[in-house]
């Protein structure tokens, strides 16, 4: 008697789970429809604005190449190697912080890291490297090694009331499980290309969002104290996740739920 009840219950639970996954994982046709939307990515307009902002504040691609001490031809490869250590800043920086420096050098007050203008300009700058493979070098120097190590640590650090870390959802154990219809992405998998497709247009927010800003959204929803943009830990996280996409082709802007 006891045993049969257990079996009945197990079957009931199993059928519930199966039903949930049948109904709530997206079909291939649906996924294809969302993929097609890339052809018309509203972020293209924002990237166009970013190009105008770079022109006005840094002297366009030529001004940026000069600031980075490379030729304009070498600019895409240079951009594809970010985040990287820069002697001028004495630290590892992402494109946004590098651009703050470039604005200063051109006599302009830098945009804040969280400003719409900075999102647009840094997204445009990353799009200059479209078609290039991500070429971050975490062994370039001890600063990069430290940033990577800090990022790796931060990724695994359990925090907040629920004791969650990035790993809770993005470890090999969790990857592929469904979180409200969405497969949890493997941040290093070729189909995710995480760092290569951020900045992206977030459809739920109707806004251009950078990788660091996305990390913040994740932290907020998982009830973790939000790490500031551009902080050592945040840049470390970007370095860590970027290393996972190393070699993948940059395609900016992405289009995400």
């Amino acid at each position: 008697m006891k045993k049969s009840i257990k079996i009945a219950l197990a079957l009931l639970l199993a059928s519930n789970v199966a039903m949930a996954s049948d109904q709530f994982s997206m079909s291939e046709a649906d996924k294809a429809m969302y993929a097609e939307m890339l052809e018309n990515n509203p972020a293209d307009i924002m990237i166009e604005s970013g190009s105008e902002l770079l022109e006005a504040n840094v002297g366009g691609n030529a001004g940026l190449a000069k600031f980075l001490k490379v030729s304009e031809d070498e600019l895409p490869k240079m951009i594809a190697s970010f985040p990287r250590y820069m002697e001028e800043f004495k630290m590892v920086v992402g494109l946004d912080q590098m651009l703050q420096g470039a604005m200063s050098a051109n006599g302009h007050k830098p945009f804040t890291l969280k400003s719409k203008e900075m999102f647009e300009m840094s997204s445009y700058v990353k799009s200059i490297a479209n078609g290039e493979p991500m070429s971050i070098d975490i062994h370039a120097n001890k600063h990069m090694e430290e940033a990577y190590a800090l990022g790796e640590k931060t990724f695994a650090q359990k925090r907040g009331g629920r004791g969650l870390s990035c790993m809770s959802c993005h470890s090999p154990d969790a990857i592929g499980m469904l979180l409200r219809t969405q497969g949890l992405p493997d941040l290093g998998a070729p189909e995710t290309k995480a760092a290569a497709t951020w900045p992206a247009y977030r459809m739920t927010k109707s806004a251009l969002t950078t990788l660091q800003k996305r990390f913040q959204g994740c932290m907020e929803n998982a009830l973790l104290a939000v790490i500031p943009l551009g902080s050592k830990e945040m840049v470390g996280l970007e370095v860590y996740v970027t290393e996972k996409s190393k070699g993948h082709t940059i395609a900016i802007p992405g289009l995400k739920r």
């Binding site: 052809e39 018309n40 293209d44 307009i45 166009e48 604005s49």
Partner: peptide, 8 residues
């Protein structure tokens, strides 16, 4: 207002 027209 910003807009883009694309022909494919």
């Amino acid at each position: 207002r910003k807009a883009i027209i694309k022909i494919k």
